[in-house]
């Protein structure tokens, strides 16, 4: 079977520090897969390797069976591997309309179009409107993003990623820092992601992980500790030890 996303023996060193150790992940098409691990387990490094921000020292990354290890960041996105950011990386002075418009333009191959004005292609306008509507952003589409409530910004974060029409979506702590009152909207948006998009959720919040994921990989010190369905992982004594150990240190 062809996995939606697969890593084979991925490694990353920072000088003498071995951060990602021989990591092999297999993520099935349509899966709701979670990658968890205690602080400092190297989750962020793994995301940066998957998206191409960091070059891996060794190992391969396959997207739907095709080797993307050597591709630059934007080529991976166009191939169908998108991500959301944990810390806000939105364009503060662009509006949601422009932000989504950018993603749709690039995805549809019109991003280098320097002669046609924005908003003059009805197919692109349709797609922008559809994405804004799906994430309940139509009423704020002309506000500068920096002035939106944080919850709306987090929704826009997911909306941008979806606007690139990914095959595989990396969700990096989608609900981090969102106030309780706005949390419900984010969780609903995550739960309602299109079923044909494979999702890899990187998360700290165990409630979200266990309500969302159908498969969990546990990363400890850059290596895969265990992998399995949620109930199995929850019972795993090694996992308990890692998390209890972490709790005991707090």
């Amino acid at each position: 079977m062809t996995y939606a996303l697969q890593t084979i023996g991925l490694d990353k060193h920072f000088g003498g520090l071995h951060v990602t150790r021989n990591l092999s992940l297999n993520i099935a098409p349509g899966a709701r897969h979670a990658l968890i691990g205690p602080n400092g387990a190297g989750k962020t490094t793994v995301i940066n390797q998957l998206t191409g921000v960091l070059k891996s020292n060794s190992g391969r990354i396959l997207l739907e069976g095709e080797d993307i290890t050597a591709l630059p960041v934007h080529r991976r996105v166009l191939r169908g591997l998108s991500r959301t950011f944990q810390i806000n990386q939105l364009y503060a002075d662009l509006t949601p309309l422009e932000t989504i418009g950018l993603a749709v333009s690039e995805r549809s191959g019109h991003g280098h179009d320097w002669w046609r004005r924005m908003g003059t292609r009805s197919d692109i306008n349709d797609e922008i409107a559809e994405n804004l509507a799906r994430f309940k952003l139509l009423d704020v589409m002309n506000e500068p993003t920096g002035r939106l409530p944080y919850g709306k910004q987090r929704l826009l974060e997911i909306a941008v990623a979806i606007a690139t029409k990914p095959r595989v979506l990396l969700l990096d702590e989608p609900a981090a820092g969102v106030p309780e009152s706005e949390r419900h909207d984010i969780l609903a948006a995550v739960a309602n992601l299109p079923r044909d998009v494979t999702v890899l959720l990187i998360e700290h919040d165990m409630d979200l992980v266990f309500s969302f994921a159908d498969r969990i990989s546990v990363l400890v010190a850059g290596a895969l500790l265990t992998e399995g369905p949620p109930d199995e992982v929850a019972r795993d004594p090694q996992v308990k030890a890692v998390y209890l150990g972490e709790d005991a240190n707090v």
């Binding site: 921000v53 934007h74 991500r83 990386q89 364009y91 690039e106 991003g111 280098h112």
Partner: peptide, 26 residues
């Protein structure tokens, strides 16, 4: 040019090059 998708992508790059690449902008 600045009001085209190309021009908008330039503003995105000035804002945040990392993010720009992450929506598929070369």
């Amino acid at each position: 040019i600045v009001h085209s998708p190309f021009g908008l992508s330039l503003r995105a790059i000035r804002n945040n090059p990392l993010r720009a690449a992450a929506v598929g902008i070369p």
